[in-house]
Design a binder for these strands. Structure first.
Lengths: 241, 241
DNA sequence: TCAAAAGTGTTAAATATACACCCATGT
DNA sequence: ACATGGGTGTATATTTAACACTTTTGA
């Protein structure tokens, strides 16, 4: 669907007043990153409407696929932003004018929207980010240095980060950010990055292995001039949990 | 608003395709109970539409107030049920016919609805349950013996129970189910009831007190022929957290 | 004075923490 | 050989668990 069709047909295709927003997170250069799309001078989370006969989860899964080209990724609904006056008419007007698009105040995207918020954890190496229906520029931004964002998307992003921090320590979902095979030092550093605090190395490794979630692979990893760590992968391949 | 007005005007008043459902829980006779309303032969959760300019949280708060007459209660959004085919046209037809009401297949309540699910914890003694806009019979049902329910409301109720079980142990929200002043034995028994498992008495009390959330009151409780326990109340009166 | 429940203490087991030590590796 | 980081061990502290002891109370 191109931008014109999307804006014209949206009201027919999607439930009114409802959207999904996706905090898509990846891990790169030892930083937790979030995929954002640029609209004129500021950025937004990827998101979209919910098809009239589409489930909310399917909408989130579809948006994720549209933006990074991946299916079957870890994905979790974490909150709903539903203020009564949550409409972005003024902001959209600014945006449309900035990019020289015809401004139509009656457009469906200006309506009050309840947005259902998901976060997704992806292996950034496997992603092929694209601009979605509006074909906007997209980029991974470090969580620690978010750019200026439109609407309430900063708040949604930070709420997503908070949820991930909870889930990483209690549900051990962090491996979804790494390749299939990863080493304990990598996982360790990932946890430290997400939680933004030091975790004692020896204890971390023992705790992770005691969970019995990972199986050690006989191979080692080719890497820098030092001892090669073991590789691990999840025992139960079902990534959705 | 009476039933007729509610059904006629709902489409004007509320966002289409969107609802809130409330798992309102209380504690009585040493059982965790949930407030349900009767529609013909089966039961449903209290719920309602979201006003066109009303926030989702306000809608939940309003429904709670309409049903139990209480404001400022502990309330938490815990999930969204959003299947693409989540409409209850057939069920509503059955219900309407069973109670001899005019059946109108085009009524807004038959639309596909995304429902945003909250649970609320109330002091059952303070509630004055009422039947809401449709003036239905309401009753507290033990969580362990749920009646036949319409739609997917059993699943929502059980998901709410699951969330409460998580939150009770990590966020210590259980006191919202008790009167302002309560004893440790009461809190202990409440936790055992919610979690449906034994919790060692001595440890429970020490852990709770170590949290430094409760202040001991000099008074004792008048009760059965035995030693009277101390009463406690939350230090920070802000019940919302 | 007895049974029942409340309050607190005591010991053992399990986990968490901090740090140490040795190993493997490429420069 | 040595600096760096990986893997594992060990001693200590903290938390959890199981259970015991004492107190209060009305019948």
């Amino acid at each position: 669907m191109d931008a014109k069709t999307y804006l014209e047909k949206g009201a027919e295709l999607f439930l009114p007043h409802t959207s999904v927003d996706m905090v898509i997170m990846g891990y790169q250069d030892h930083q937790l990153k979030v995929l954002l799309q640029q609209m004129a001078t500021k950025w937004t989370l990827p998101g979209g409407g919910v098809g009239k006969e589409e489930s909310v989860t399917d909408a989130a899964t579809r948006v994720l696929y549209e933006r990074v080209g991946l299916s079957n990724q870890f994905l979790k609904l974490f909150t709903v932003f539903g203020n009564g006056d949550r409409s972005f008419r003024d902001e959209f007007e600014q945006i449309f004018k900035a990019v020289d698009m015809a401004w139509n105040p009656d457009l469906w995207i200006n309506n009050r929207h309840i947005t259902i918020c998901f976060y997704a954890l992806v292996d950034i190496q496997k992603t092929e980010p694209t601009g979605g229906n509006l074909d906007l520029p997209v980029a991974w931004h470090p969580m620690t240095a978010l750019p200026d964002m439109w609407f309430d998307h900063s708040a949604i992003t930070l709420a997503g980060l908070e949820q991930v921090r909870k889930d990483v320590s209690s549900e051990y979902v962090s491996h979804n950010l790494l390749p299939e095979e990863f080493s304990m030092p990598e996982l360790h550093r990932l946890h430290e990055t997400i939680l933004a605090k030091k975790l004692e190395r020896s204890r971390f490794q023992k705790k992770m292995l005691a969970l019995d979630l990972f199986e050690r692979l006989p191979k080692m990893k080719e890497d820098a001039p030092r001892r090669k760590p073991f590789l691990y992968r999840i025992k139960n391949k079902d990534k959705s949990r």
